[in-house]
Amino acid sequence: MKFNDTFINRTERFTLGIETLSGTPYLSIPVSNRLVDYEEYYEISSDSYALFLNDPSAASDFAERCRNREEDQRLILKPGSDRGVAS
């Protein structure tokens, strides 16, 4: 997988992009566990991607649901046993 970030919101701490091999749009959030900082990638629809680019507050709301683990069914890469916490 190759994730290509197209929009970064440093204030709200999320990124939008397209996974280049599949063309899948995503929103990612930073996460940390006791060993490493990494990102979790959540699949979104093309319509959501367009909406989030035009309305960052809608993206921020979705990112918050991801941080609260309410969108785990959308995770592109499933976390390991030492899943981190949103940072």
Rank of each mutant, 00 (worst) to 15 (best):
Tyr38Lys: 11
Tyr38Asp: 10
Glu39Thr: 03
Glu39Pro: 00
Glu39Arg: 14
Glu40Met: 13
Glu40Arg: 04
Tyr41His: 12
Tyr41Gln: 08
Glu43Thr: 04
Glu43Ile: 03
Glu43Ser: 07
Ile44Val: 14
Ser45Lys: 08
Ser46His: 13
Asp47Phe: 13
Ser48Met: 10
Tyr49Pro: 03
Leu51Met: 11
Phe52Ser: 05
Leu53Thr: 04
Asn54Ile: 02
Asp55Trp: 14
Ser57Lys: 12
Ser57Ile: 15
Ser57Met: 15
Ala58Asn: 11
Ala58His: 15
Ala59Cys: 09
Ser60Tyr: 03
Ser60Asp: 00
Asp61Asn: 09
Asp61Gln: 11
Asp61Tyr: 02
Asp61His: 05
Phe62Gln: 01
Phe62Gly: 00
Ala63Arg: 05
Glu64Met: 01
Arg65Gln: 15
Arg65Pro: 03
Cys66Ser: 11
Cys66Phe: 01
Arg67Val: 05
Arg67Pro: 12
Asn68Val: 06
Arg69Pro: 04
Arg69Trp: 14
Glu70Met: 07
Glu70Phe: 05
Glu70Pro: 10
Glu70Gln: 13
Glu71Gly: 01
Glu71Gln: 02
Asp72Lys: 01
Asp72Cys: 02
Asp72Gly: 03
Asp72Ala: 00
Gln73Val: 03
Arg74Asp: 06
Arg74Gly: 02
Leu75His: 07
Leu75Ala: 07
Ile76Pro: 06
Leu77Val: 03
Leu77Asn: 12
Lys78Ala: 09
Pro79Leu: 13
Pro79Asp: 14
Pro79Gly: 09
Gly80Leu: 12
Gly80Asn: 10
Ser81Pro: 03
